[in-house]
């Protein structure tokens, strides 16, 4: 989970204009001004990073980064 969270923050910093020091596990995507299209883009990046398929409703704007990391981790486990 921590590893997934760190890698997710890495994606946000590399491609989405987010600074590492402005996020925590509690920060929501809304607070980062990431709308539904931004989350589609994050889903595409996460698909490459984690090798799992991210559906439209897996990550919502109201979710926190910690919740998103958990959702991705759960998918990775179910595949593994």
């Amino acid at each position: 989970m921590n590893d997934v969270y760190d890698r997710l923050v890495g994606l946000l910093t590399r491609g989405f204009g987010i600074e590492p020091d402005e996020v925590s596990t509690e920060t929501t995507f809304n607070e980062l001004e990431m709308d539904s299209l931004a989350l589609v883009e994050l889903g595409l990046a996460a698909q490459d990073e984690f090798g799992v398929k991210i559906e439209d409703d897996d990550i919502r704007s109201s979710d926190s980064i910690g919740q998103a990391a958990e959702a991705i981790a759960a998918k990775a486990v179910s595949i593994g």
Binding site: F16, G17, E33
Partner: peptide, 12 residues
């Protein structure tokens, strides 16, 4: 671009 439109928007 980051200076022009901000880092949260520049990429989009």
């Amino acid at each position: 671009p980051v200076r022009a439109v901000g880092r949260r928007k520049a990429w989009r």
